[in-house]
Write a protein that binds this DNA or RNA. Structure first.
Lengths: 170, 170
DNA sequence: TTCGTTTTTTGACAGATGTCAAAAACTTCT
DNA sequence: AGAAGTTTTTGACATCTGTCAAAAAACGAA
């Protein structure tokens, strides 16, 4: 099985600040981020909102588009030089058909992603900007090293200026 | 297989305002909500925050607790008389082991739940209270019929007073 | 290094939202 | 219908946060 797995994956290497997935296009691949870091963002009222970050090693894609095969509302960009291994949706479906074990891995992956998102959602819900920032420092410190202030601010759901002021107060 | 499935599920019938899952307890079951409506909530600074609603027919549980088997941070209450069919995590795991088909159903379910939560997250992220309320009316009008103002407000991430004022302005 | 660009910080101000408190409207039960 | 409880509305006020604009700092390329 390991042999068969390998032949489905294709390596993708991207430099810093390049796009992996573009808004408006259908995302047909699931990517394993082997090394590097990325961010997912979308446009709102002319502003770019970064709503998630991805760090190696993990599976990433524009989940909504990949799952529904609708045009993606988000774009994905590299935050630094990154190496991916990608597999198409069609091929992944075949693998899941052929191997219960693969279907299970994907199920467990989704379960994990769901839980993580739920936690983030709850954390964001009724906390002040400062509390969310403090929580970020505790729970996802790696983000601080790779993301710019603007990316961070939108990730936290606040303006860049407010984040700058929160930072200067300690 | 249908026969075998049936024997794993147990019916639970609850009146209005009763609790299905309580904070602090490990949630060991997945529930199929056959009829009725429920809400999931947690305590924050002495206030009860309702962060999701569930409506028949769908599968519901305290996902974080069910998945990790850690004590639940949320409680689940019925909004009206409701009928559930529950299956234990152990038994569901057995079913998933024995039937690839079941594993697939669960995988697809998680995929759907993830997408839904992501949409809600993005919608909430940078919109004003009024916009979120308008969006709720368009996208989840059924919630309006069952939830009290207080539940709704916390679901939208705003105070009850603010929601009341938004409502009175149209 | 130096110039030009991007990112971050700071200031002034307006507007949205939360909080506390009380009144009003609505429910439920007897 | 009436009493008691709950839910919703309203008012006054403080504060957090966003916006716009400009200055300062950091970064990159030549």
């Amino acid at each position: 099985m390991a042999d068969e797995l390998h032949q489905y994956f294709e390596q993708v290497v991207l430099p810093k600040n390049s796009s992996l997935v573009s808004e408006g296009q259908i995302c047909r691949h699931l990517y394993f981020l082997e090394s590097g870091a990325i961010r997912g963002s979308y446009m709102l009222d002319g502003k770019e909102i970064t709503h998630w970050f991805g760090f190696a090693p993990e599976f990433v894609t524009s989940f909504h588009s990949f799952s529904t095969q609708q045009p993606s509302v988000e774009s994905i960009y590299t935050l630094e030089g990154s190496v991916f291994w990608r597999i198409s949706k069609v091929q992944l479906s075949q693998l899941m058909d052929n191997y219960h074990e693969i279907e299970r891995l994907v199920r467990i992956a989704y379960e994990g992603y769901y839980i993580r998102l739920e936690e983030r959602f709850v954390n964001a819900h009724f906390k002040t900007a400062a509390e969310r920032y403090r929580q970020l420092i505790e729970q996802e410190p790696h983000i601080l090293e790779k993301a710019s202030l603007g990316h961070l601010a939108s990730y936290l759901g606040i303006s860049q200026e407010t984040l700058s002021r929160i930072r200067s107060k300690r």
